[in-house]
């Protein structure tokens, strides 16, 4: 366990020591802030319209259902674009810098290396996600949302982030180039996003395809609903890519 933490801590500290992480966090916070103010304006406007109409006909606006849910669902799309930037350096940087030789000859297992790398990227992701809390604090300050669904949504975002980062980690292990790793990750993630919409029109194959959409499994979480189906999906998705990453490291040893 200590080896995992050692590797994770180094990656985390190295990222924070470079300006890249701050630019990344800044742009993410800005975009999320933009989403927030836009969604909030719409929400307020809809609320006022409804008040003018007398606030009846069962059309109650709720800050959980009509604001936070969409806000956090859209955060997952934003993350889709930012997560590759968090994971792309993890292993490709070690390959390029020759430091992979240090890790692979240290008395640690390949599994520990992969977990350490994953945890390091995940810690960065958690910090990035932390910026979204600022806006939610504002909502909790001025309104009384249910905390339960919000916590469920954040659980979802953590699982979603883990899944996306594990995929990114795998592509990072393929190439000494961070750009190649990042672009491949982004490309695959975009495909896994688009197949969410394959379901429309029904049909077995399409439904099966849609099941593999990383973003699709976020919608229940965003509503505050935790289902086993989504939990199983994210955990097995993450496990699968971490496993592939370990195999990729192993094959790197074999190839030399």
């Amino acid at each position: 366990m200590s080896a995992v933490l050692t590797i994770a801590r180094r990656d985390f500290a190295a990222a924070l020591a470079s300006p890249v992480a701050f630019v990344l966090f800044g742009v993410f916070a800005f975009l999320f802030g933009y989403f927030f103010s836009d969604f909030l304006a719409n929400f307020v406007e809809a609320g006022m319209r409804m008040a003018q109409m007398g606030g009846f006909s069962g059309g109650n606006l709720h800050v959980n259902h009509d604001l936070i849910r969409w806000l956090l669902a859209s955060a997952s799309i934003l993350i889709l674009f930012f997560a590759p930037l968090l994971s792309m350096r993890a292993i490709s940087g070690e390959i390029r810098g020759g430091t992979l030789e240090l890790l692979l000859t240290a008395p640690v297992t390949d599994t520990q290396i992969v977990l350490g790398k994953f945890l390091g990227a995940f810690a960065l992701y958690a910090v990035m996600l932390g910026f979204t809390l600022l806006h939610l604090v504002v909502l909790f300050w001025f309104s009384q949302p249910d905390a339960g669904p919000v916590l469920a949504a954040y659980l979802g975002l953590f699982l979603f982030g883990g899944a996306v980062l594990s995929l990114g980690l795998f592509f990072s292990s393929l190439s000494p180039s961070q750009i190649v790793a990042g672009l491949l990750t982004l490309g695959v993630l975009l495909v896994l996003w688009l197949i969410e919409f394959a379901d429309q029109g029904g049909g077995g194959v399409r439904a099966a395809l849609a099941y593999f959409s990383v973003t699709g499994h976020m919608s229940d979480f965003a509503r505050g609903v935790i289902t086993t189906r989504d939990l199983v999906f994210y955990l097995s998705f993450t496990g699968f890519w971490l496993f592939l990453t370990r195999e990729s490291l192993r094959s790197r040893r074999w190839r030399g």
């Binding site: 180094r10 190295a14 020591a17 470079s18 810098g97 020759g98 430091t99 992979l100 030789e101 240090l102």
Partner: peptide, 9 residues
């Protein structure tokens, strides 16, 4: 190793 495995930062 032939090239010292250093983290430049």
């Amino acid at each position: 190793p032939e090239n010292p495995p250093l983290y430049p930062e």
